[in-house]
Design a protein around this nucleic acid. Sequence first.
DNA 1: TAAATCTGTCATTTACATAAAACAGGTTTT
DNA 2: AAAACCTGTTTTATGTAAATGACAGATTTA
Lengths: 263, 263
Amino acid sequence: MTIHAPKTLPEGGKAQRVYLSLSNEISNGVYAAGTMLPGENRLAERFGVSRITIRRALDALAADQRIEKKTGAGSIVLKPHEDGTKIAANFATLMPQLVEMGQSTTARLLSFSYGPAPGGIATDLNLGKGQSVQTAIRVRYADGKPFSHLTTHVPEDIARHYDEADLATQPLFQLFERSGVSVQSAYQTVSATLAAPDVADALEVSVGAPLLSLRRIVRDINGRGIEHLSALYRPDLFRLEMNLSRVGAGDARHWEPVIGAPE
Amino acid sequence: MTIHAPKTLPEGGKAQRVYLSLSNEISNGVYAAGTMLPGENRLAERFGVSRITIRRALDALAADQRIEKKTGAGSIVLKPHEDGTKIAANFATLMPQLVEMGQSTTARLLSFSYGPAPGGIATDLNLGKGQSVQTAIRVRYADGKPFSHLTTHVPEDIARHYDEADLATQPLFQLFERSGVSVQSAYQTVSATLAAPDVADALEVSVGAPLLSLRRIVRDINGRGIEHLSALYRPDLFRLEMNLSRVGAGDARHWEPVIGAPE
DNA sequence: TAAATCTGTCATTTACATAAAACAGGTTTT
DNA sequence: AAAACCTGTTTTATGTAAATGACAGATTTA
């Protein structure tokens, strides 16, 4: 399932909306694989647009290998292409997995500087106002495709334990352990955003494409902020996943994340 | 903070995308409250659009009370209207929290039907082809604002333990426990999408707004699929969060989700 | 006070998605 | 074989978002 609309469709036009709707309905099985879609005229009427618009949406779906157009007959829904390339990170054990990922992925350092922490970040890290942090922006690639855009803020005194070269080759987290920083706790938030121009450019998606957004604050044993991460992921290449298990009995029965086990 | 674009902006046009991007960046603190936005010409260059387009986006932001335009000077970022209503769900213990939420939120049933399970869903739930499932689409509201759009699929024999009225008032998960189904494990995936017209309508956001997407498969003790949930959340009203703690020593040192404790 | 920078506004032009309608030529159905 | 239905293709028209450029007036900076 490619969420990202093909560039052939006018960005944000009716055709794209029809495309998104149909794409969704196919994913959700409203139109099952192997069955025929309604005719173009029928769809045009249903969506309240002209046949040409429907046509463009169908062409885009065909280009995505989601349907096959049969001249004179109609469009048949194809079986979804298995995205072997999708990178999955276990949300519960995210960081160790990133270490592993570090070995099969590439990172590019886009920006690197020291300076006073922006307001929100300083608050999150419990820093004094104007205290200096290292700000680094990196993009991670898998198979030559950029799948994540990472902005990290680290208090300067901690950041001085490693340099730019380290950042381009090793995950930030690994550098901490090596520096003897006693990492203790982390707080993560997940949300969604749209790609702004700079990020869109770095991640090779169009402006306004949906991105998975993860924010993480890591603290040391004293509760001091060590790292502030703001990560943006391409949903077509990356997803967070997690297994839960129902444990306990009676009133105490509740959910617990499964730690070691992937799907 | 309203992601919903004013009607004055062309649905899905460049101006709206700029509006959404800026709106997002303000929410994320890229432009902190009290500071000035870059000038219109600068923004035009940054987004690669004309100044008029920027202007329309800024007007929309001003109409939303997110910025204040000062003639001759620039636009100042306003303090966000405190929506104290942001709903946070702990990702690790999601379901129990949903139970609690059920008491302070309203649900509306948009669609309800029985029929053969769509292909992908049937596979996910390990169902025989064409086996009947109950499909329900619900929207949840908090303070009169819709924050989530839920599509659930449940095998018919299990679903028959409750009816439409139950669905509108109680979280699905609660209904299972009551029906004596032995819930065992769950698998969750998180990603991001754009709002398609139908969802946009239900969630009162504009088409193309970013949404957090969560997919969950719940199984019973025999590994049989019980529920397939496809949820879409408004990122401005809802977020997933999680606390992690670093435990163990030496090579065995790793992250573990903190269970009971919220922020 | 002068210069620089910004917003407010207008007029003109360009670009392009969408609509509407008609026809040719496949495919399926009866 | 004919009828019904479908896609493929083209032409013309239209509405409108967006770009361009220019200028006035407000505000800040030097």
